[in-house]
Write a protein that binds this DNA or RNA. Structure first.
Ligand SMILES: [Zn+2]
Ligand SMILES: [Zn+2]
Ligand SMILES: [Zn+2]
Ligand SMILES: [Zn+2]
Lengths: 134, 134
DNA sequence: GCGCTTTTATCGCATTGACG
DNA sequence: CGTCAATGCGATAAAAGCGC
């Protein structure tokens, strides 16, 4: 990770890449440091902070149906949870926007670049307190 | 010293063979050196590292949330419908669409780049509670 | 070939500025 | 002033790869 700009300062707008990766964006233009490091196309989208947009009173039926369906799904999921199916691997969270079909985004890791690491028997504690749970 | 045989250089992505054998992959395309040496079919799979869900095939929480959201929407829609404003004044459809961003590589903090940026007025206390992962 | 350490990336959720 | 959405920390799962 970056581990440098984390001083409690939050930028008003992060670039698309950093937003997706949920990492700190330094905000430098035209390419932020994280993006430059990886040679990624940094872009600052013009985000219009729109509050929750409620649908007009036309899709009530649709919504009701959706709820019904979801309720059913949840019910089934609850039941399924108890059973604990053997071969069932959950891919993981993948939520973007309920607009269209979401393509499988391939956040290809580094192909070719390497990073140098060093053996370190002892580690120094940063100023941040580290509580290890679980 | 000269190469990356085993000197603190770790690739972000190793080929399937090397990964399976747990040996160092040099990362050369299309066939890495280890694979070439043994005449093995080198292949770099495009796999995105994803966090696994602790509960297999169970999105109960997500579903519940969705239901809640939908319920709220429906409720509001009902109320709005009853009100029925004289003129259809809508804020306008505005969604945050990341759209593309097909190529996303990694972020390497290895480069010790000291960036000097001034902080904005208004700091807050770093009191973020530790998030407990599953 | 594999146990286990080192290192990195992903993502749950705390925080907070902005909206209405 | 109540909420929502955007930012980003930090926990921790996953991957690379050493050494036996
Ligand atoms: Zn950025
Ligand atoms: Zn960027
Ligand atoms: Zn290889
Ligand atoms: Zn190979």
């Amino acid at each position: 990770m970056d581990g440098n700009t984390s001083n409690g300062v939050r930028l008003a707008k992060a670039c698309s890449i950093c937003r997706r990766k949920k990492v700190k964006c330094d905000g430098t233009r035209p390419v932020c440091v994280p993006c430059r490091t990886f040679g990624l196309p940094c872009k600052y989208e013009d985000t219009v902070r729109r509050r929750k947009k409620h649908n007009p009173g036309e899709n009530v039926h649709e919504l009701e149906q959706r709820i019904q369906s979801l309720q059913d799904e949840l019910n089934e999921a609850h039941a399924s949870k108890r059973r604990r199916l053997p071969s069932d691997e959950d891919t993981g969270p993948e939520h973007v926007q309920p607009s269209e079909a979401s393509d499988l985004e391939l956040l290809s890791p580094r192909n070719g670049t390497a990073q140098t690491y060093f053996r370190d028997p002892g580690r120094s504690r940063p100023w941040r307190r580290r509580v290890i749970y679980h």
